[in-house]
């Protein structure tokens, strides 16, 4: 692209932004700018990335100016409850929204009672657990066996999030197979990915939570490197992983990944079902937002997905498109929550 073209596109872009901010399309039930508040603080993570993909497409579709603000879960809930009624402020988050509530993290509301669950958009299948390359555990099943034999295994996670859920699920699976032995799995409360990695490097943790995207390069380091890691468990279901492009991520192909997901691994949620977790992204709306607006967004997003371009964009970034209209999304997420609540019910938190 030439400079002229680029400068022009910037200028035109700016002009469009101004115009769309000023011109209020008369038939739309939402007027003015739309703000998407994220349930995370980071602009570098997967939530921001998924939010900006859908926000850009949606903005084009409904010809509105949409901005994405990463203000964190608790602030986002409050902003939504205070300012979301007109539909100008909506929230975008992942399973954290109800997991935080299940783990009783202060400030989390019951999304099924106090908000309208909007459409689901996409999945990040990368939720994973890793060990040092020198570790004796090849897959998560080895960890279950080891703890069952009385070994102590320390797992680094963040309180009340997806990583914590994996800990609980693992503990539950050990309890099912070796009742009474589950205390051998020890929770190590670390924070960000940096802290979790560091806990592994320091030898403070035996297993850490991570992601395919964030940790794949560490798994390719030579074994004598202090930083070398190995995947032991990918929590997404085998079915979900099958929807990924076969090249996978970096040098870890889809076929490699299939070794660390169900049914290869056996982390039971109860007597018959295996535990799986795919990180699902979705919208939340104010409880009293006009149902017309719910439908308006549902239809607009459905059209975006019908065009077929957004799917490619998600897949390019290692995400899996997964659209459901609001009603369906609510049932889907509520079922998901109930399944996890059952696991937690049998455990001390």
């Amino acid at each position: 692209m030439t400079i002229l073209k680029r400068t022009l596109s910037l200028a035109v872009g700016a002009a469009i932004m101004v115009a769309s901010g000023v011109a209020l399309a008369s038939d739309a039930p939402v007027k003015g700018n739309i703000r998407v508040v994220l349930g995370v603080n980071s602009t570098g993570g997967d939530t921001y990335q998924n939010a900006s993909i859908i926000a850009n497409r949606l903005a084009e579709k409904i010809d509105a100016n949409i901005r994405v603000d990463a203000i964190g879960a608790v602030n986002a809930f409050r902003t939504l409850q205070r300012q979301g009624k007109s539909g100008n402020t909506i929230m975008f988050i992942h399973d954290q929204a109800y997991l935080g509530r299940l783990y009783e993290v202060p400030g989390y509301i019951d999304i099924f009672e106090e908000t309208i669950v909007g459409p689901t958009i996409s999945i990040n299948p990368g939720n994973a657990y890793l060990v040092p390359k020198s570790s004796p555990y090849a897959t998560v099943d080895d960890i279950i066996e080891a703890v069952g034999k009385g070994e102590r295994v320390r797992l680094a996670t963040e309180r009340g999030g997806a990583s914590h859920l994996g800990y609980s699920a693992l503990k539950n699976a050990i309890k099912l197979k070796y009742p009474g032995k589950e205390e051998g799995l020890v929770l190590l409360n670390t924070g960000s990915q940096a802290d979790k990695n560091q806990a592994l490097f320091d030898g403070q943790a035996d297993v850490i939570h991570g992601s395919i995207q964030g940790n794949e390069q560490f798994t390719r380091l030579p074994a004598d490197d202090q930083k070398a890691m190995r995947f032991v468990w990918i929590t997404a279901s085998g079915e979900t992983i099958q929807q990924m492009p076969p090249e996978g991520m970096g040098e870890t192909t889809r076929d490699h990944m299939m070794a660390w997901v169900d049914p290869e691994t056996e982390v039971y949620a109860n007597e018959k079902d295996l535990f799986t977790y795919d990180k699902m992204f979705y919208f939340l709306y104010h409880k009293d937002m006009d149902p017309k607006i719910v439908k308006y967004f549902d239809d607009a997003i459905a059209e975006v997905f019908a065009e077929g371009e957004i799917q490619k964009e998600f897949q390019r970034s290692f995400f899996i498109p997964s659209f459901r209209k609001s009603d369906e999304a609510r049932t889907f997420l509520e079922d998901k929550k109930d399944a996890y609540a059952n696991i937690l019910a049998g455990l001390e938190k």
Binding site: N41, G100, V105, P106, G107, E158, R159, G160, G161, N189, T190, G191, S192, D195
Partner: peptide, 9 residues
């Protein structure tokens, strides 16, 4: 919690 805390105020 992202810093490793327990999320309490």
């Amino acid at each position: 919690t992202i810093k490793g805390g327990n999320g309490a105020v």
